[in-house]
């Protein structure tokens, strides 16, 4: 039996998995940032027409999956499975978002790494011929996340300079068994280990997650014996400015220097004008930025090959209150342009 697993934790798919379409829907703050024009839909207010923020997140998910199906010219009955997750307790963001969809639903939790986890697992399902078309999606909502993890929004407190801003938005891709034609294709995935180097501060998640991202990238490079310079971009999920810097520091200690690096949390907000401190975060951060900014360039060939590494902090409000450190994870997918 010829296994597709290479090295310690990497999978190389026997055939490239096509990303047939990608869609992103965001809140108004994201719509004022540098990626604004690239999102499919920017909502005019955080409620999205719902009467609570949790319901708003579900509506955003619903809208996103509708758009991603339309863009792939597929009706919902052609989608075999949906793999989705978010940050809310018991994943109500995704569960309620998919409630009316009638798509077989597989809920995932990887905190903000969920989008990478969903694309990786979805590609496995397609590659194994268990499915023809799969939706992978992830979402988050600033207001809903704040009240679950931190303080009420109207509390007059100051955000520490290391904090990041949870993105309001959802991103989704359709993964298809379709090797014909040009476009963006998933060719490999590395599922990360849980790494915890002892960061406790829930207001410094970039620092908590940086070692996990570095470990997963290093695992991929070793498993496949690849040089990081062969990629046009190495894109992490939501490490932000501080986490990104630490990620590069850790890798350079391992003798790996990366010059083509960026982070979705750095891309999505304007640091100077949007008061987001260390950048964007949340499941929706990597999902919306990948779908809006990088996917189109991978389809057109403007970018040839990327490592996309969504990162997640696997803590809860309870574990933080009990003084636990923050275990983190990062999942990597290789996405390439094919002619």
């Amino acid at each position: 039996m010829n296994y597709k697993k290479k090295g310690t934790q990497t999978i190389i798919f026997s055939e490239p998995i096509k990303i047939s379409s990608a869609a992103s829907v965001t809140g108004p703050k994201e719509g004022k940032g540098p990626v604004a024009k690239e999102f499919d839909v920017v909502l005019s207010d955080e409620y999205a027409g719902a009467d609570s923020w949790e319901k708003a997140e579900s509506l955003i998910v619903e809208k996103t999956i509708k758009i991603v199906c339309e863009k792939a010219s597929l009706t919902k009955d052609k989608i075999d499975f949906a793999l989705a997750g978010d940050l809310l307790n018991q994943e109500i963001g995704s569960a309620f978002g998919y409630r009316e969809s009638e798509i077989p639903f597989i809920g995932l939790f990887g905190a903000c790494s969920t989008f990478g986890e969903a694309i990786g697992l979805g590609s496995c399902l397609v590659d194994g011929r268990f499915a023809e078309n799969i939706i992978a999606s992830a979402s988050s909502h600033f207001c809903a996340a704040e009240r679950q993890f931190r303080f009420p929004l109207e509390l007059g407190s100051q955000r520490p300079p290391t904090s990041t801003w949870t993105v309001t938005g959802a991103g989704a891709v359709v993964l298809s068994k379709n090797t014909k034609g040009s476009g963006a294709f998933v060719t490999g995935a590395t599922f990360g280990k849980i790494i915890d180097l002892g960061v406790k501060d829930a207001n410094n998640m970039g620092a908590a997650m940086a070692p996990a991202a570095a470990d997963t990238v290093l695992a991929f490079l070793r498993d496949t014996k690849t040089d990081p310079q062969t990629f046009d971009k190495i894109i992490t999920g939501d490490l932000g400015y501080l986490g990104g810097e630490l990620f590069l520091d850790i890798l350079s200690k391992e003798g790996i220097n990366i010059s083509n690096y960026t982070d979705c949390g750095i891309e999505i907000f304007d640091k100077k004008t949007q008061d987001t401190h260390c950048g964007g975060s949340g499941c929706g951060c990597s999902a919306t930025v990948f779908c809006a900014r990088f996917y189109p360039k991978l389809v057109s060939g403007e970018i040839e090959k990327v490592l996309f590494v969504p990162t997640g902090a696997l803590m809860s409000a309870t574990s933080s209150q009990q003084g636990e450190t923050i275990p983190s994870i990062a999942h990597l997918v290789v996405v390439e342009h094919r002619r």
């Binding site: 180097l197 960061v199 620092a207 070692p211 290093l218 630490l246 391992e254």
Partner: peptide, 14 residues
């Protein structure tokens, strides 16, 4: 782990 940085070293970097 693949990375060799220790918790103490890393917390100092942070």
């Amino acid at each position: 782990n693949h990375i060799t940085v220790t918790s103490n070293e890393f917390l100092k970097m942070v």
